[in-house]
Write a protein that binds this DNA or RNA. Structure first.
Length: 683
RNA sequence: GGCGGCGUAGCUCAGUUGGUUAGAGCAGCGGAAUCAUAAUCCGCGUGUCGUAGGUUCGAGUCCUACCGCCGCUACCA
């Protein structure tokens, strides 16, 4: 059993999670789930990156304290991650006492090693905002080509590099005022002193992808490494440097230390020793990052770890950026899609599958093309994999699984043997290869079912045993696939576990068939994606400025709606009735006067509704998981009012609130259009 | 400019250390089946493997040059 500590880059507390971020978190989550499924000891550690000028400025703009801002952001981040089944063992914050302690410890070690130098840095200072200005907070006229409105570090027009203090007519983008030149003492780390170590670590340990190692060799390691400026003068939201009052650690100094700090928090919760995870040769440390932050993680970070005596990363897995429809994400095109927006319209498993099918160990950018996305998920997952269960489980439900595993022409054995290949692909981060191999299995399994034609066997009672054998094979091949896909699609694995009453928890469950047990009732495991859902996400993402879309403004008037037929199929129409039958049910508009939680009830809310005037009554409604009580008060809903009162454990219910949906969180109350009044009958 | 990556069928990509007529999925066309969420199965590919040279008995696979696309080019994040 290996011991593995895995991290994703810490999301910055300045913004919400979007689909670009999710490439990394889904990639990491898949890798971690794979390791856990294999039986290894594996921790997935992450945290919010909370320090720096950007946070400070934003808090000022919103007129809240930085601590409030980062707390809100962390909550939002965690909600988004949970929505995509990204499961951390610990999710901390760089603004934590643990992180402060560790920064101090590492800083002290770096001091002791004689790597710290002090130098004057000249920067522009914004008097109004009372802060030094980072390059991107200054604009002005290019000193070389005189192009106006250029950023502080280089010119878009002529490509010249310069100091912000060389800009002509510089303007602070924070206050609009003219900044002045000030100099301040900064602390630098002399990374060059570790040049030899970095050369060795980047080029010869196998910790980096070859193209990354080449990149570093060609760009940075050829010449002396520059000193790294790790301090910022006050005001700065971060940790003050204990031996240099008035100076703060630059956010990129404390951010990666957050990996250790967050691990420490986990250790405290679980009674483990931090050194067992971060200073032990028995633990592998794996970082997953985007290519934009390569040099922080491949030069500065290993230098820090080395100096302070921590374990060096076993591997830094670097991925490319997300493009959408072949282009950079764009707010005007509606392709800058936030995680929460996606989740309002689409199932997260689609994105997990799509990303997995595209991810390789290389640094290439990943393109989310919507046409491909729809086609791939629908044909690979719904049409191929899930269909395998769908077409055998119904018969299997009648026959159960055979006691011995039938002759399947070697299909199960072949797929079991291929598990090794798939595992190697997952381990390498070559999820695309793993998916290809798994899909080929699914193709073979579908061919098998086709050839055996269980639907014909079913017609002949004498063939019942043969039917059971065919279902046993089909369902076991499906289960094998579900195990192999479990890191990518934990929900599918869970559903499969339920169907066969044997939870999927270990990779080696793919090696032996499941026998001699009943098969549950098949329920749809995944819905098809419609183009309409995609369009809804795009339009919701395009219109972020005017965030006032009311649900009732939604496109109700689109007659070309291509809605799924699943709900109707799941619950077919009842036998025909006459008008007299219908009129026996007295539906009334009612107003919710009060709504309260029912202690001890799982689904029920206790509602007091008004039929107008003094006519009030108490109705219990099974909508607790879908509606918070306070959202209901004042609303008009529809009530079956002449239903005989029903005694329940928690009181008597005099009526029934009508709603649609399968239940749980998916319940949708019916509301009349504006103008309706309590007491009116619904005809 | 420098450096790096990529360039294989309409689209997305596989092609292990160079070895026989270069493959898969999707899309398309024809057929079968009707268990399944119109899902599935069978059949159908004359591709200058970016271009031009070179090494070799033999190159998509190695070398060189060129073309095209993308990215990076630290004291911004």
């Amino acid at each position: 059993m290996r011991r593995i500590l895995v991290t994703s880059a810490l999301p910055y507390a300045n913004g919400h999670i979007h689909l670009g971020h999710l490439v990394e978190y889904i990639q990491t989550d898949i890798w971690v789930r794979f390791q856990k499924l294999r039986g290894h000891r594996c921790l997935y550690i992450c945290a919010d990156d909370t320090h720096g000028t950007a946070i400070m400025i934003r808090a000022q703009q919103e007129e809240i304290r930085e601590e409030e801002l980062i707390a809100q952001m962390q909550e939002a981040h965690l909600r988004d991650f949970a929505g995509f089944d990204v499961e951390f063992d610990n999710y901390g914050s760089t603004h934590s006492p643990e992180n402060r302690t560790l920064c101090n410890e590492i800083w002290t070690a770096i001091r002791k090693a004689g790597l710290v130098e002090q130098k004057k840095v000249t920067q522009l200072y914004d008097l109004t905002a009372g802060t030094f200005l980072a390059d991107r907070f200054v604009k002005g006229t290019c000193p070389k080509c005189k192009a106006p409105n250029q950023y502080g570090d280089n010119c878009d027009k002529c490509g010249a590099h310069y100091d912000p203090s060389d800009l002509i007519d510089p303007v602070s983008t924070l206050s609009g005022g003219t900044p002045e030149i000030r100099s301040a003492d900064h602390l630098f780390i002399n990374v060059e002193m570790l040049h030899g170590f970095l050369e060795e670590w980047t080029q010869r340990t196998g910790a980096l992808q070859p193209e990354v190692a080449n990149y570093l060799a060609g760009h940075f390691l050829q010449e002396p490494l520059h000193d790294w400026d790790v301090s910022r003068p006050a005001p700065y939201f971060g940790f003050e440097i204990p031996d240099s009052p008035g100076n703060y650690w630059y956010v990129w100094f404390d951010a990666p230390i957050g990996y250790i700090a967050s691990s420490w928090v986990w250790c405290k919760k679980h009674g483990e020793k931090l050194d067992d995870w971060w200073r032990s040769q028995a633990t592998e440390i794996h970082h997953f990052i985007g290519k934009d932050i390569t040099y922080f993680h491949t030069l500065f970070w290993p230098a820090m770890l080395k100096t302070a005596g921590f374990r060096l990363p076993e591997k830094v897995h670097i991925h490319g950026f997300l493009t959408v429809n072949g282009e950079k994400m764009s707010k005007t095109k509606g392709t800058f899609i936030q995680a929460s927006t996606y989740l309002e319209h689409l199932d997260p498993v689609y994105l997990r599958y799509f990303y997995a099918s595209k991810l390789t160990p290389r640094v290439d950018d990943l393109d989310l093309n919507f046409d491909e996305f729809v086609a791939k998920v629908n044909s690979d997952m719904v049409g191929n994999v899930v269909n395998l269960a769908s077409r055998t489980a119904k018969f299997g439900h009648e026959t159960g699984l055979a006691d011995g595993y039938p002759d399947d022409g070697g299909l199960f054995a072949q797929a079991a043997a291929e598990g090794r290949e798939i595992a190697a692909a997952y381990e390498d981060g070559d999820f695309a290869r793993a998916i290809r191999t798994i899909l080929a299995m699914s193709d073979r399994a579908n061919q098998y079912v086709e050839a055996q034609a269980p639907w014909n066997l079913q017609k002949d009672p004498a063939q019942h045993d043969e039917l059971r054998r065919v279902c046993t094979v089909g369902l076991n091949l499906f289960r094998q696939i579900a195990v192999y896909l479990a890191p990518v699609l934990p929900r599918l694995a869970r559903q499969t576990g339920q169907l066969l009453d044997d939870p999927i928890t270990r990779w080696d469950q793919s090696q032996q068939p499941l026998l001699g047990r009943p098969v549950g009732k098949f329920e749809h495991m995944m819905q098809r994606i419609t183009r309409k859902q995609i369009d809804a996400v795009i339009s919701a993402s395009t219109d972020h400025a005017g965030n006032n879309t009311h649900p009732s403004d939604a496109p109700a008037a689109d007659a070309s709606a291509s809605d799924s037929d699943a709900p109707l199929k799941a619950d077919p129409l009842s036998p025909e009735i006459g008008i007299e039958d219908f009129s026996r049910v007295d539906l009334r508009v009612v107003r919710v006067i009060a709504a309260e939680d029912v202690p001890g009830a799982q689904k029920l809310l206790k509602l007091t509704v008004s039929l107008g005037g003094d006519d009030r009554r108490t109705v219990f409604a099974g909508i607790k998981e879908a509606y918070p009580p306070q959202d209901l008060v004042g609303r008009l809903v529809v009530c079956a009012a002449n239903l005989a009162p029903r005694k329940m454990k928690f009181g008597t219910s005099s009526g029934m609130i009508v709603a649609s949906g399968p239940g749980g969180k998916d319940i949708f109350l019916l509301s009349p259009d504006p103008g309706a009044q309590p007491g009116q009958r619904v005809h």
